[in-house]
Design a protein around this nucleic acid. Structure first.
Lengths: 226, 226
DNA sequence: CTGTATATTTAGCCTCACCTAAATTTGTCT
DNA sequence: AGACAAATTTAGGTGAGGCTAAATATACAG
C-alpha cells in the first residue's frame, strides 16, 4: 500500500493537471498546504517510484501507474461523498472534508458495497464524475455559468466542492447538479448574472458563477427544454 | 488531535487492563505488534503528555485524560462495527479489521449521525458494550461459557472479536449475542462442552468456549427461561 | 542584454514512530 | 545468597514527511 501522503500528492497532481494543464511545484505546495521545498522532495520520491515524471523547473506528469492510483483515490473520494449525503444525510458542504479522510481507509470490499448500495452511481453530490473501477471517467463539462450569454439555457453539471461557504450559497439558490437554469441578463465588466431557476429569479456574482459548470441545451429545439 | 499511534496505544492499554489487570510493556508490544523497546519509548511520550503514569519496570495506568481518549476510540470502534454490519451488511468476522481504520477518522458529527441512525445502541455486533459519549460503560459479563457446569443455562453476552476464523465458527454454531444456550455436558480435562441452542446440540472445544462470555439465568425460575 | 523578481531546488535539520543490540533490573530457583 | 532467565530500559539508528535558509534557474522588463 501507499502512504496517505503519496495518495494525496497524486490526487493533487491529477486535479491541478485537469484544472490548469500544467502542474508546478508551487501549485502543488499551495493545494497541499506545504512548503515548495517539501514538494520538491516528495516529487523526487514519487519519480523514483515511477508514479510520475519530473522535468526539473518545468513540472510534473503522472505515469500510467500514478494515474491509476490517483483515479482510485478520486473514485473513493467521490463515492464516499455520495454515500455520506445519501446514507447519512451529511449536508453537501461538509462531505468533502469528511471524504478527504475516508478516501484513504476505504477497503475495496467496502467500496464495492457502497457502490452497489448507491446503485453504481456515475456522479458525486457536486456533479463530479465518479471514475469506474477500471479508471474510465466521463468527460466533465467545461462551460462555466459565468461564460453564458443572456437568453441561453443549460443544466447545472457540476459545482466546485472545495469551499463550504460557496456550496451553502449555491444550495440556497437551488443550484444543484441537474437543475435547469436560464440566464436572463449578464451585467458588463464581470458583473452579476440574473438567472432563472424554475419560476424564480436570482442574481449571482461573476465569481461564484465561475465555479458552476453547465451543459448547454442543444439549439435543435428552439424554445428550449423545460 | 492525537496521532493514530497515540490512540492505538491508549486503546490497547485500556483493553489489556480490562483483560489482564496489569499492563506490562511486553503485553503492549505483543498486542500492537511492535518491539518492547518501541513501547518503552512511546510510554515515555504518553507519560509526558499526562495520558498515563508509568512505574518503571512495573507497568502503566491510564490517567483520567488518557482514559477519556481510550473510551472515545473504543466508542468509535464499536459504533463503526455495528454500523458496518447493520448498514452495509459486512459479515461480523470482518468488521473488526475495518473498524480499526475507521475509528481514527470518524468525526464527532458523523459519530452522532451513525449513533442516531442505529437508534443509540448499547452493544456492538459481538456484544461488547458501546461507551456512551460521556464515557460510561455497562459492565461486561465475566463468566465464560467454558466455566459453566452441565445443566446450566445462560444467554450469550459477548464474544471475542479478534479472530475472524473463531467468529465464523461461532457463527456457524449460532452463538451470537443474546442467543440462549444450555450446557448439556462438560467433558473433563478441558474437553469439549456439549451445548444446546434452540433444539439442536453442538459440541464446542474448551478453547473456543473460553472466548464466549455469558450471563447466567438467575436460579429463581427453575426450569429456566426459554 | 542586463538586472531583478519569481520559481525551484539544495542543504541541513526536525519530529514521529519504529528498529536492533546492548545494558540493566527484577524475580525465581536452588 | 547467588545465579540465571525474563522483562525492561538505554543507546544509537532508520525512513517518512515535513521545515527554513540559502543557492540557483528561469522569465521578464527596460
Amino acid at each position: 500500500m501507499h502512504t496517505q501522503a503519496v495518495e494525496d500528492y497524486l490526487k493533487a497532481v491529477y486535479e491541478i493537471q485537469r484544472e490548469q494543464g500544467e502542474v508546478t511545484t508551487t501549485a502543488l505546495a499551495e493545494r497541499l498546504d506545504v512548503s515548495p521545498a517539501s514538494v520538491t522532495g516528495m516529487i523526487k520520491k514519487l519519480a523514483d517510484m515511477k508514479l510520475l515524471t519530473h522535468e526539473p523547473y518545468q513540472g510534473v506528469t503522472l505515469t500510467r501507474a500514478g494515474l491509476k492510483i490517483a483515479l482510485e483515490v478520486i473514485r473513493h473520494h467521490r463515492l464516499v461523498e455520495l454515500y455520506l449525503t445519501e446514507a447519512l444525510g451529511v449536508p453537501w458542504d461538509q462531505v468533502h472534508t469528511e471524504a478527504e479522510k475516508w478516501e484513504h481507509v476505504l477497503s475495496e470490499e467496502l467500496e464495492e458495497r457502497m457502490d452497489a448500495l448507491l446503485g453504481y452511481p456515475t456522479a458525486d453530490p457536486h456533479g463530479a464524475p465518479i471514475p469506474s473501477r477500471d479508471g474510465t471517467l466521463t468527460q466533465p463539462a467545461r462551460l462555466r455559468l459565468a461564460d453564458m450569454q443572456a437568453g441561453q439555457s443549460a443544466a447545472v453539471a457540476e459545482v466546485s466542492d472545495h469551499d463550504p461557504a460557496l456550496l451553502r450559497y449555491l444550495g440556497e439558490l437551488g443550484l444543484y447538479p441537474k437543475v435547469h437554469v436560464t440566464v436572463m441578463a449578464v451585467a458588463p465588466f464581470h458583473g452579476p448574472l440574473t438567472i432563472r431557476i424554475g419560476e424564480v429569479e436570482h442574481s449571482i456574482g461573476h465569481e461564484a458563477a465561475q465555479h458552476v459548470y453547465v451543459t448547454r441545451f442543444s439549439n435543435r429545439r428552439p424554445g428550449g427544454a423545460r
